[in-house]
Write a protein that binds this DNA or RNA. Sequence first.
DNA 1: TATGAATGAGCGTTCATTCAT
DNA 2: TATGAATGAACGCTCATTCAT
Lengths: 199, 199, 199, 199
Amino acid sequence: MAPLNEEQLQQIRDERKEQIIEAALRVFARRGIIGTKMSMIASEAGISAGLLYRYFNSKDELFTTLVQQAIDESIAGIKSIYQLPGTPLDKIKTLTAEILNEGSQFYFMLMHHARTSDEVPITAKKLIEENTMKTYIDILEPLFIEGQKKGEIAEDNPSELISCYLSLLSGLMTVNIQGDENYQIPKVDLLLRFIVRPS
Amino acid sequence: MAPLNEEQLQQIRDERKEQIIEAALRVFARRGIIGTKMSMIASEAGISAGLLYRYFNSKDELFTTLVQQAIDESIAGIKSIYQLPGTPLDKIKTLTAEILNEGSQFYFMLMHHARTSDEVPITAKKLIEENTMKTYIDILEPLFIEGQKKGEIAEDNPSELISCYLSLLSGLMTVNIQGDENYQIPKVDLLLRFIVRPS
Amino acid sequence: MAPLNEEQLQQIRDERKEQIIEAALRVFARRGIIGTKMSMIASEAGISAGLLYRYFNSKDELFTTLVQQAIDESIAGIKSIYQLPGTPLDKIKTLTAEILNEGSQFYFMLMHHARTSDEVPITAKKLIEENTMKTYIDILEPLFIEGQKKGEIAEDNPSELISCYLSLLSGLMTVNIQGDENYQIPKVDLLLRFIVRPS
Amino acid sequence: MAPLNEEQLQQIRDERKEQIIEAALRVFARRGIIGTKMSMIASEAGISAGLLYRYFNSKDELFTTLVQQAIDESIAGIKSIYQLPGTPLDKIKTLTAEILNEGSQFYFMLMHHARTSDEVPITAKKLIEENTMKTYIDILEPLFIEGQKKGEIAEDNPSELISCYLSLLSGLMTVNIQGDENYQIPKVDLLLRFIVRPS
DNA sequence: TATGAATGAGCGTTCATTCAT
DNA sequence: TATGAATGAACGCTCATTCAT
């Protein structure tokens, strides 16, 4: 019954906040900003609705936090491609496979809602406007050019090629849904065929 | 002085209904079923909110009508590929270009909401469950097989190839948004490269 | 196609108005003022909703007209007792039987709504306030006193006796409903037993 | 600091629910189901409109609850006649006086609306259909027969006599209104005169 | 910190009333 | 005169947010 010390309290707070963020991501991703009720996030996080407000001032703030996080993680994820082993094309294949299989789908869906919905808080809107596809193209361009030099990658305009690659990937991740057994994420090799230089 | 005759009234009713359906498609597509307020549809259609209810009994009914229409038109659209001129690959290219350029984007977005949202009316849910990707695969399979025989189309499993093609197309159409100048619909030739048999 | 002359038009107007009043009485009586939609009255009268407003400026005015009519007719009805044949008790029995059997039930139900509902237009409220039970007591008192003198009628205070008689009658007429076969309007002799002087 | 414990919460909930039920009875009784706005009940109960919905899912559910309660209490009330002291006629007089004086009037008015209005929820409609006058006649019949044997009660068909008694009572309770000083609930002895066997 | 009762603004829907024909 | 399309105010209900405990 002794009161917790400062440090322990802070730790509880951090854990709770993480709990909430993860719960919110799952719910917002599936249901969008209006479709999501604060009570849903609360019950997904296993806490009461009122407690949410000790960690986030409003639904908007919570949503915006998630958008920020999605942007940060997606940039970091793309940048990580340079740490991967192998030739440029190897790297691209590995990263693509990781994205397709891994749990990043929630982020794609969240960002789709954030881009499409009109109810998005202005702050989040701004974050999105500053985070255009150009950001990602700039990161990937050196790698694609290197791949083209090596003759691995098709000789199109690299920027256009990357844009197309990202659009396809993003479309797949956003649209992919359970419930239609005919709807399957394509195999990586099939998907990347349009990047690969015909031999 | 005299009231309008039956024919004139019917014409007014038909026009209004069409007006509403078009307005509703635009709004639902962008904002989803919950994000869409009946007043938005009304003002998009240039009529009062109350008048909507002389044509559709409820928001749900209106939404369901649109889903039905989207399904009908998409099936008709896919079937129309057989009327196009040229070889199988020609046909596929032409149809793909049409889809990418034409205004069918609203239907894709609507269907995405209809598939994803939990607030979709049961009737619409049923329509969607009955309308899996298999419907479209079955329509396109003969054409793809013919293309493979002619050596135009890659030698993958045709059903898988079509599924991949449709997934990519559907993802692009759903995700594609105004507002990001870097986000461009890929050129048809680029997109279809993974279908074409490498020469 | 020749235009109707003034007289014919007036006749049409009068018929229409009567049509509407009768329809409105039936609907208001059963459903009360709020439960009644103008469209119900219109369709009960076999005309369009818009046309109602050429005869009555508003729902309130129509309702008030009916209340006025109900009051007028009820007073006339009570007064008519003096035209009936026989002794005072005979007259009372005859009138009671007439009321119980005849179609005056709609008026009782209407007046019940008018007295109970808070949505009644002020004008109607005033009519009702001016039309207390005293009006009817005053009309009937001479008859009851005469009956008492003749030894036909119980020796209670006449005013109280009449009030009780009217309350019971009015309660029966208001509450009596189809649909419960056990709910039967009592026989006149049974009902009047408390008025009759025990022999 | 600590949240309320389960017991305290339950007590608050019970009190609120009772508050709402009492308020709703008063308002529904006077205004009927359509005439009653949820906001009226809320302000009569001294709470906000939104809070109503934590206790009752809908206006219909609230109304139906009241109908159920009215039926239960009326049956219990009638049955309680056998606990009263004295001869059958004494019992009947006492119960009648109790009903006429006591606050059961709201229940009569509520049931009148429930029986008459077309907007009554189906569940309530069913309750009412199952609760005909026969229920009450069956309860009272033995008592009336006993009274007839004792020579206290008139020698009419007992079932008919009870039906008449209940109709009159129910009519009085339904119709009786404040606001007309001439409209007075009759004295019990006067009212019951038609039951009593003439000496 | 944590809970859940309480509030009130906002949306879907209905309906009295108006108006063009 | 007669019609029915059109409007908009009002009510039932939901949910983000606050607050007492």
